[in-house]
Simulated scan of single mutants.
Amino acid sequence: MSTAFLLVCALCLDAALGEPDWLWSRVKHPAVLIGNLIGWLDKRLNHGAQRRLKGVAVVALLVCGALIIGRALTLLGPVVEIIACAILLAQKSLVSHVRDVGAGLAVSLEDGRGKVAMIVSRDTRDMTQAQVARSAIESAAENLSDGVIAPAFWFLLGGLPGLLVYKAVNTADSMIGYRSEKYRDFGWASARLDDVLNLIPARLTCVMIVALSGQWARWPQMVADARRHISPNAGWPEAAMARALNVALAGPRSYDGQLRDLAWVNGDAPREIGASEVFRACDLLWRVWGLALGLVSVSVGVSFIF
């Protein structure tokens, strides 16, 4: 079976089942296991001298381990590959979490704050309705790339070993890839490698959103917004999502009680948004998923013919 065919099956399986509570309440999700390992290494290595070198060693260990485990799972056959790939995709769970924010906002601002606090790291206690909605949509855009398109991309290129390498590095970046004093050196390698691994997927996600929304004429503005973003990759899907929905994203937000005056994305668009825009973002997530599924399915058909 071709890798593309396995990916089609995995995309459909993830869309159908997502992350069932009955399973992950009984066993630990692979991402949790990876996170536990990274946390253990963080506690034991992130101190003293040579922190950057130790961080490089951590990333090397994660990459080698992912390659070995991925290869071992591949030897178990295509069914195992499909299930493992589906587990490491996050389409249905992403849409579910973002839609929960919209549903919460539709009930009350407090409910919306509670739901968005589950998917973002910024301060949520004093968020306005618009800030809650923007946070949910930004998370939708970034995680569409990180949790769906990038894993699918690396599975296509490198099979299950490639996908596991991506997930290990991406998880490490989310845990230790910060610019704080504690992680500036220790998390340097994971942050830089994650930037490299997401370079193409983030821009591919942007192109797919633009293709579906027909916003090609505004491409130069999207590029400008993406380049002003604090992340070298997250700004691309955010800039496309903002224009597809005709909303302003990013802007000032608070982390750990400190306000950060970040640049707006599509700043001239409406900023006072709410639940309806969050629901529209969820619809767009499924449309991008459908486009990805269609493109991979076409490649399966072409390979079958030729």
Rank of each mutant, 00 (worst) to 15 (best):
V300A: 04
P237N: 11
I83T: 08
P220K: 04
G114H: 11
V116D: 00
F306I: 13
G104S: 07
I209M: 10
V59L: 14
V148F: 03
G187T: 00
P20T: 14
R253D: 11
D225F: 01
V27W: 02
D21W: 10
V265S: 09
I200H: 00
L13Q: 14
R243A: 02
D14H: 01
L262R: 15
H47L: 09
F306T: 13
L204W: 07
L76V: 11
D146T: 04
L144W: 03
R228F: 02
S299L: 13
A133T: 09
V59R: 04
G104I: 03
A244K: 09
M175A: 13
A57G: 13
G112N: 01
G35T: 10
A141K: 07
L199E: 15
A275R: 09
D256Q: 15
L285K: 14
A224K: 09
A281C: 13
F153K: 06
I82Q: 02
G294C: 11
R260M: 11
T124E: 00
Q129M: 12
P151A: 08
R227P: 04
V79S: 15
R99F: 03
L61V: 15
P78K: 03
N266H: 09
A269E: 10
G70M: 06
E238W: 05
W264L: 07
A133H: 05
L293F: 12
C282L: 04
L284P: 02
V63H: 03
L160G: 10
G301L: 07
L6M: 00
V116Y: 00
M1T: 12
I68K: 02
V32F: 00
R192T: 06
M241I: 06
A217I: 14
F279E: 14
L33K: 09
R125G: 09
A31V: 15
A211N: 10
L193N: 04
S2C: 01
D146I: 01
V302S: 07
C9G: 09
G70A: 13
C282V: 08
S96R: 14
G290C: 11
S190T: 15
K182N: 08
S93C: 12
L88R: 05
V98C: 01
L89K: 03
I69M: 08
V27D: 05
A242Q: 04
L67T: 15
P20A: 10
D100T: 13
A172W: 11
A106D: 10
N46P: 09
K167T: 15
P30V: 12
D42I: 08
R203I: 07
T171E: 05
A226H: 08
G187H: 08
L73C: 06
V116I: 02
G65W: 10
